[in-house]
Design a protein around this nucleic acid. Sequence first.
DNA 1: ATTCTGACGTGGG
DNA 2: CCCCACGCCAGAA
Length: 110
Amino acid sequence: MKLKDNFYQKVYDVVKKVPFGMVTTYGTIAEHLGAKKSSRLVGYAMNLSHNNIEIPAHRVVNRNGLLTGKHHFNGKDLMQKLLESEGHEIINNQIVNFEKVLWKPKHTSK
DNA sequence: ATTCTGACGTGGG
DNA sequence: CCCCACGCCAGAA
């Protein structure tokens, strides 16, 4: 049981599926899992999984496209650097054209 | 065990 | 537009 385990598992899986040059949001993932209200869990799951270098957590931002979790990386603007390296433009900790690089699960073709 | 906080999001006043 | 509260789960003090 423990559907929550499945929940985290899905979060990791989805995040790892995020293609290069694309980003996603906690709310989008949570909604995809059918727990939009548990958007916090997604962020929390990231925190637990941030040990898993295989998970591009830097591609996950809040619904505002704001790099809310950039402080949780190497403690520097590593998150911003990574995003910029992938072709994103960050201004004031916010992703430019965020909606244009926003990637959604099961809607990859775009 | 209890209390607070945290990578969020939505709604109400 | 700004502030507060609720929902969700887990870890730390």
